[in-house]
Design a protein around this nucleic acid. Structure first.
Lengths: 180, 180
DNA sequence: TATTGTTATACTCTATAACTATA
DNA sequence: TATAGTTATAGAGTATAACAATA
């Protein structure tokens, strides 16, 4: 990464003027006037996988966010707790690798869950450098409900698709990021 | 949101102790000892659409980010410029609605593109409150190459899928966020 | 020497309130 | 009054460098 990308820099003073644009395919404008847009044409963007995958992810995650608020869990909290419940003794490093979180950014997240009484931290039995993360009884109970809610949400979203399309979609999505 | 999430606070002293966990399905640990994890089980998360859609989006966008760096364009810059090129005279409001960006966050973005000589701003011919955004010749030239690069990238990603699966994937993704 | 976990820090992204000019 | 654009600002999310303890 080259740095921060300056805001006010300059490089190009932007003199270029406002070429009257003689008759260059007006978007939705009259004859020779300044064109304006009535209906936005986003067809090119909509042809891109990244654009569509991001929009779909945001739509699903938005619903996820709303329903998990009842448990005081953001998506990342849910992900971490789910992994801890299903993998008692998992280390921070393993969480980071699995979820793509950087270690410094996991510290406060885990500390917060510990303060809420959802995670116990015990010395790792094989590696003195590491700390094992263990679900408390409260966490196990909470995640039973939360994962049920997630499954319900999944069913609701699946209702937008035809039977079998959910499995197809999951399979294709996994093929996209497999190996990353 | 309750605030900043305290660092060392306390609230719950986390006494809960380390329940020896008699024989409760050890993740990968021996008999009665503290369990630890050898291979992380992420099967539940991997069954969720949101999780997979997000990972796929991030994987694709990451490649996008790398290749567009050659043009000095982040994904959002590409999206904005693409819409401006295909919709000369589009307004900030129309960009925000199409891309899901909040107006205050578009201001510096557009200003930056204008400083780079890629966008001209002209008064809207029908609405005195609005400003039409127009591509400069440099922007048109740049986006011809950038959109070609995006199409190439699309083909590379599509190589991971069988013929026809890309169309299927796009169709299913759109069904997920349709109406949002 | 390499790795785990941590602190401090900085940059980016996203969100809200409030203001102006025009419709 | 409602909308387009803007400013200022706050809050998440994400990133790097550097350190202590252990492997």
């Amino acid at each position: 990464m080259p740095a921060a990308r300056p805001r006010q820099a300059d490089a190009t003073p932007t003199p270029r003027k406002a070429t009257p644009r003689p008759r260059a395919r007006p978007a939705a404008a009259p004859a020779g006037g300044v064109p304006f847009v009535q209906a936005v044409d986003a067809s090119f963007l909509e042809s891109l996988l990244g654009y569509n995958a991001r929009r779909a992810a945001l739509a699903v995650i938005d619903v996820f966010l709303q329903r998990m608020a009842a448990y005081g869990l953001r998506p990342v909290d849910f992900s971490v707790l789910s992994l801890v419940v299903h993998n008692p003794g998992i280390t921070s490093r393993q969480l980071c690798t699995t979820l793509g979180i950087l270690p410094p950014n996991l510290v406060n997240l885990v500390a917060s869950l510990q303060e809420r009484g959802l995670i116990d931290r015990l010395p790792h039995p094989r590696d003195g450098r590491a700390t094992g993360l263990h679900p408390t009884a409260a966490a196990t109970k909470l995640m039973q409900k939360a994962e049920r809610t997630a499954a319900d949400l999944e069913a609701d979203v699946a209702a937008r698709l035809a039977p079998g399309e959910v499995a197809t979609l999951l399979r294709l999505l996994r093929k996209l990021y497999a190996g990353d």
